[in-house]
């Protein structure tokens, strides 16, 4: 089954004093994870997203959409990237999700992808 791992993290952690070092360490963590994914031979994909300040949201009310500045959810943690991995089951997906580097506050949401045959 395919699972999407949605990375929500506090971007401000990277803006602080040691921000750039922290970012380097996080990116290195992602590179390591990607190497592992490749080595495992499974199907996967994933992307880093630009900062939430670049986000645009179309908000709908009664089906009428209007375009707004900013991300959909107004929280301290912003969607910063995602992976889609092919995992045996939820436990397997959780194991992969735990390998996503997360130096500060945040969370990784694990969602099964709707299978194609249904």
């Amino acid at each position: 089954m395919q699972y999407m791992l949605l990375i929500n993290e506090d971007e401000s952690a990277y803006a602080g004093e040691n921000g750039s070092q922290l970012m380097e360490a996080t990116l290195a963590g992602h590179m390591k994870l990607i190497e592992e994914l490749v080595a495992s031979g499974r199907e996967w994909s994933g992307n880093r997203l630009k900062d939430a300040s670049t986000a645009t949201t179309i908000r709908y009310k009664d089906g009428q959409g209007s375009v707004h500045d900013g991300p959909f959810a107004e929280t301290h943690e912003e969607l910063g990237g995602y992976y889609i991995v092919d995992a045996k089951d939820l436990d397997d997906a959780i194991e992969w999700a735990r390998k996503i580097p997360m130096p500060g506050n945040g969370g990784v949401e694990i969602r099964p992808v709707w299978p194609e045959e249904e």
């Binding site: 995992a87 089951d89 939820l90 436990d91 694990i110 099964p112």
Partner: peptide, 14 residues
């Protein structure tokens, strides 16, 4: 069912 929770006894560390 939908999230794919496995039907195996988890590894001891879990």
């Amino acid at each position: 069912r939908e999230a794919g929770i496995p039907f195996e006894l988890p590894a001891r560390r879990h």
